[in-house]
């Protein structure tokens, strides 16, 4: 006879599956998930598609300025955030930080920054400095810090510590150690993460306008509020194209770097 199959850890498996099912059921009920509603409203969806088609391409010229504004916001956010992320990432890397207290504080700061989505920052800055692209640029700066510092601090922790220690051993200061020993090793990753953040920022900056933080999203919001779906379609299609193009460029640069 074959040896009896050892009983699985029923508490673990039963618990995990039970949790999964319960959570899904509770969530689905909570948000009013219903296939019938989906099926019944498909006609509504058809009408919406009819309204969105054909796209009002005559609207395209009016998109150029907001589009440029979107790109400006993304550039400013990436540059400012990318620069500010450097010290935050270095201090959050266990092997480079100045002390356990600094490390702990910086790491938690980083994690808290990461919890809030880009549009929350946009809403906050729009309230503080007024509607417009400046709020968007500030929001994306914070968002970029959150993305880049987290990723880069992890790759800084993986660098070879021989060089930084060598800089220290010849009497270099902490700053010199970081500047000449650590950062050159992490530079490639840094550039690649900043480019990645730029991709995210382009995508985010397209929707920042929904909360009044400048860029093409502001036009999208007004057209949507007026149910001008032929124009909404044009905006969304052009956003899609822009995002795909910038992603391709950025990805090909990142591939060349690594």
């Amino acid at each position: 006879m074959p040896p009896v199959k050892p009983a699985r850890n029923w508490w673990l498996w039963g618990g995990a599956i039970g949790f999964l099912v319960a959570m899904t059921w509770w969530s689905a009920v909570g948000i009013g998930f219903s296939m019938t509603e989906l099926a019944c409203n498909i006609t509504g969806g058809g009408r919406l598609l009819q309204e969105s088609w054909p796209p009002d391409f005559g609207f395209l010229p009016r998109l150029v300025d907001p589009f440029m504004e979107t790109i400006y916001i993304a550039i400013i956010g990436t540059v400012v955030g990318g620069i500010l992320a450097i010290p935050i990432a270095v201090l959050a890397a266990r092997n480079l930080t100045l002390g356990p207290l600094v490390w702990f504080a910086d790491r938690n700061f980083m994690n808290v920054l990461r919890t809030l989505p880009d549009l929350f920052w946009a809403m906050l800055f729009a309230t503080a400095v007024g509607f417009g692209p400046v709020a968007g640029a500030l929001a994306l700066s914070v968002f970029t810090i959150a993305v880049v510092s987290k990723l880069w601090s992890e790759s800084l922790e993986a660098i070879d510590m021989g060089l930084p220690e060598a800089v220290r051993s010849v009497g270099g200061t902490w700053l010199q150690m970081v500047q000449f020993g650590a950062i050159p090793q992490g530079l490639q990753h840094y550039v690649s993460y900043v480019l990645y953040a730029f991709e995210l920022n382009v995508r985010a900056s397209m929707v920042l306008g929904l909360v009044g933080a400048g860029g093409i999203g502001m036009i999208l919001e007004t057209q949507r509020a007026n149910f001008e779906y032929e124009r909404v379609t044009v905006i969304i299609l052009s956003v899609l194209v822009a995002v795909l193009v910038i992603e391709q460029i950025s990805e090909s640069i990142r591939k060349k770097l690594t």
Binding site: I31, G32, E37, L48, R203, M206, L220, R224, L244
Partner: peptide, 29 residues
């Protein structure tokens, strides 16, 4: 998958809200 990825969620939601009505269901989709 590349096309699906290019859409920010919120733009998709703009389309789903009129289809399934205001609310969380549109968001989940």
């Amino acid at each position: 998958s590349a096309t699906a990825r290019a859409f920010p969620e919120i733009l998709l939601a703009i389309y789903f809200v009129p289809i399934v009505g205001l609310g969380a269901f549109a968001g989940a989709l």
